[in-house]
């Protein structure tokens, strides 16, 4: 009579599992590389807290170089990962990719990554589509199974930027750039209102969105301190 387990079945399953393991290994390598570029770029970006706006130009150029490296590695990741079901491995790189998105969003907000704005012309928010264009990968794919940036990744990346900007509001005052604090305040308040438009489920996005209110409070306190002392720039505040 037939054996309990077809010997061919075992070999087939085994080789599939081994293949899966080698895909994971390869992905780990690419993601490691991306991680290095991302944390380096984040490191340069952290100088925003001690750099006056007049000196943004040379510094943002460095940031852009870092982002260029990120873009290259994301390209590598995209072409490798697109051979496999996207959501099978997405969890492996999603955190790193969110951080990469954050660096691009913050750089652009400070006036980088653009021909039309100069460093220091703050306030530009990259859309999901803009971010996709910068990393030259598709976004929010629905019709085919390939690498792309998801809406969640974009929004989570954006929330990290909000936290960074709240910190910058404090430091910009220390640097004597009160106008920047006020601009940050109105940007964060608008974003906060934007996030309230979303219908969130009880997931990671919900948790992170809930944290925005603390950023709002932080910058509002800064603006309040400025207004108390008549330090608001002309034409701003009430």
């Amino acid at each position: 009579m037939a054996p309990m387990i077809d010997p061919a079945l075992f070999e087939q399953l085994k080789s599939k599992i081994e293949e899966d393991a080698s895909v994971r290994k390869e992905l780990d390598q690419i993601i490691d590389e991306l991680n290095q570029h991302v944390s380096f770029t984040q490191g340069i970006l952290s100088r925003v807290h001690s750099t006056p706006r007049s000196k943004y130009a040379p510094w943002l150029a460095q940031v852009e170089d870092g982002i260029k490296k990120e873009v290259e590695t994301v390209g590598k990741l995209a072409s490798f990962a697109s051979q496999y079901p996207y959501y099978k491995y997405n969890h492996k790189w999603t955190r790193t990719l969110q951080d990469a998105i954050s660096t691009a969003l913050l750089c652009a907000w400070l006036g980088g990554l653009s021909e039309s704005t100069k460093p220091g012309d703050v306030g530009r928010l990259l859309t999901l589509e803009d971010v996709g264009a910068i990393f030259s990968v598709p976004v929010n794919l629905k019709d085919r199974d390939a690498f792309h940036i998801t809406i969640e990744e974009y929004l989570l990346g954006l929330i990290s930027v909000v936290d960074d900007l709240a910190r910058l509001a404090v430091n910009s005052v220390t640097l004597g750039d009160n106008a920047l604090a006020v601009q940050i305040s109105s940007f964060i308040k608008d974003l906060h209102a934007g996030f309230q438009v979303l219908n969130l489920k009880n997931d990671i996005l919900r948790k992170r969105v809930d944290s925005i209110k603390y950023a709002v409070k932080k910058v509002e306190d800064v603006v309040y301190d400025l207004s108390l002392r008549n330090l608001l720039p002309q034409g701003e505040g009430q």
């Binding site: 928010l125 929010n140 809406i151 608008d190 309230q196 438009v197 979303l198």
Partner: peptide
């Protein structure tokens, strides 16, 4: 306490993303 948040430059973008996320949920 919060009536509908006032619309601003980002509202349309968030509304688009909301519709996409709703579809997923």
């Amino acid at each position: 306490a919060h009536p509908a948040p006032a619309r601003n430059a980002f509202t349309p973008m968030f509304e688009r993303l909301r519709d996409e996320l709703d579809e997923h949920h």
